[in-house]
Design a protein around this nucleic acid. Structure first.
Lengths: 213, 213
DNA sequence: TAGATTGTTAATCGATTAACAATC
DNA sequence: TAGATTGTTAATCGATTAACAATC
């Protein structure tokens, strides 16, 4: 579809998508790089560069068509088809992800949850099927799942990654606070909540130092 | 303490900290930039540059002392003192954060949770005090909280940010899928889970395209 | 046509990598 | 001392910003 898109641009795509969706909802039909830049805290120049890495959408003198651009970015990110998720780990985090309806609405439905202790969890997850991890080999292959969500302790994550890899899974959304090692044909996206909290802590410190001087 | 540390380095600090902690636990006393680089998937050169932005720790011919370096990074990130958190929003995400014991262990204890519907939530959060949001003005100031965690719908987040700002809060950990606007003396760290999922989706797409060609 | 705003090239800036002298 | 590995300077690379001609 498009040529090569740099990592820096890809990391901004979800934000573009979010803002364009909001603009569309607000009834805005077109927007200039200037106005979008003000809104997203980016320079107009950067926005024009970014958007031009995936094709000429703008019209000189007018700006960019909101809906068309939004739909294109949506397609680039692959949001025009469904990605079924299986969650491994039924702790609070696993259950929070399982029950957040927003993901399913955006095309990422959770189809099952695996945990050691199925009884405890079944109670709190309503409609979602819950299975013992021991049945992973038997059940996962039939689920047509694209993404495995790892919501388990750091110590267990690496082993589980290898286990789901051997079952054909090539995409992992990792919530365990560990840097996993994985083959080149696998994609792992980390959500390291502590890291994020630690950076926040650093910035609080800086702020306080600034205030003192 | 240290001079200016670039944002690129700061984003890597939590990973350094995590790996050094693991090495320490494994009984490793010193490590070379080469070995740490292999482990963290960074070049030795980058590691030496990074570490040198905050002072000369290494010894030529030997490498870096694991514990000393870890403790220093810990101090830079401000993890040597406590940051009390208050969570606003008692949905699954708010409760998941509240009950993850790891944060408290690392110096980020949650001291209270605010929500509209206190009864429903009180049941599932054990020891944590739960209050109605209407009592925020009355209760928050006495709590000595440094960080407010926003775990509520996107529509409510901006207004709540302004509300806690006026109560003296200067640090926000935001889980709402919204780009908030905030004053310069405030620090906001976003955890945009959908963004992360969308980037994963993009990479799955790429992978599949690569496989086809 | 005139005004606005893009697409795109060139300039700048910052981050990463390479190289090597300093030194443990 | 010899070998290893840092600290640091220089080179490279990539991303961001500036500028302006093209064009709606």
């Amino acid at each position: 579809m498009a040529g090569y898109i740099s990592d820096a641009v890809i990391r901004r795509l979800p934000a573009y998508y979010r803002h364009l969706r909001e603009l569309e909802d607000a009834g805005v039909k077109q927007i200039s790089s200037q106005d979008l830049g003000d809104r997203m805290q980016l320079t107009p120049s950067q926005i024009r560069q970014d958007i031009n890495t995936f094709g000429g959408f703008g019209r000189q003198g007018y700006g960019y068509p909101v809906t068309e651009l939004k739909e294109h970015i949506r397609a680039i990110m692959g949001l025009d088809h469904e990605h079924r998720m299986v969650i491994i780990g039924g702790g609070r985090m696993g259950r929070a992800i399982a029950s957040y309806a927003g993901f399913a609405r955006e095309g990422f439905p959770t189809v099952a949850l695996f945990d050691q202790d199925t009884v405890r969890i079944q109670m709190s997850t309503e409609a979602l099927p819950v299975y013992p991890v021991a049945e992973l080999e038997e059940r996962l292959p039939g689920m047509a799942a694209k993404i495995v969500v790892l919501a388990l302790p750091a110590e267990a994550a690496q082993e589980m990654l290898e286990r789901v890899y051997s079952l054909g899974i090539r995409a992992v959304w990792n919530f365990a606070p560990a840097d996993l090692v994985y083959p080149r044909d696998m994609t792992v996206m980390n959500v390291h909540l502590s890291d994020s909290l630690h950076i926040l802590s650093y910035r609080i410190n800086q702020q306080e130092e600034d205030a003192r001087s």
